[in-house]
Design a protein around this nucleic acid. Structure first.
Lengths: 101, 101
DNA sequence: TAGGTATTTAGGTAAATACCTAAATTTGTT
DNA sequence: AACAAATTTAGGTATTTACCTAAATACCTA
């Protein structure tokens, strides 16, 4: 885990919001958009962009940024890319701050 | 604690370094500069700037930034400003990431 | 009060980040 | 093959951040 890379990835309100929305998709996204929701996959780019009220390209790069940093896991299925949280990485980050920062 | 403010404060390698140097000043700063060191005060601006190999004004604003965010505690004594870590804030951050992020 | 040391504030430039729209790509369906 | 949907890549502008030097301020001591 590259601490600076992870922290930079979190240093934006929208990206921080996305991470918390993905904790509980049913509470944060309209039910009809989660018709085919599976915890193993997560939520697709355009649903997240709509929730964020930002353009799809912007959110697409945010999501890629977060998955490169290790905070999210991307899964391509058909023409969709789904993103879910990487809980292990988030706990690892908390531990690293607790012990080493 | 304003999470975004704290994270932004940490999103720079030099500021991250400063925080870790202050964990163990004796290991990280030359002994002669710590002649009057006290854990209650910490280390002064110019000693930190020298260690960081950056200009004093730049490091001065970094330190103020981190203390505004709550990560450091500043103490003015005579013509020096000393900075030390705010351990409580750092542990609070770790806990917040663990539980709420 | 004059002079010295430490720090802060002001003001500037270069690089990075935050967004956007348009174009290209991927993948599924007629 | 042709079209459509979702995403990514490219390319652009505005804002923020990362630094610096010079000037101003704070605080000490003679």
């Amino acid at each position: 885990m590259n601490l600076l890379e992870v922290i930079k990835s979190l240093s934006n309100q929208t990206r921080l919001n996305i991470l918390t929305w993905l904790k509980d998709p049913f509470a944060c996204f309209p039910a009809e958009e989660l018709a085919d929701y599976s915890p193993a996959l997560g939520v697709c780019v355009s649903d997240i962009a709509k929730k964020a009220e930002m353009s799809i390209p912007t959110v697409s790069v945010y999501l890629k940024n977060m998955s490169t940093a290790g905070l999210l896991v991307a899964t391509r299925k058909d023409q969709w890319t789904y993103y879910k949280r990487n809980e292990d990485a988030i706990q690892q980050l908390a531990q690293l701050i607790k012990d080493n920062l």
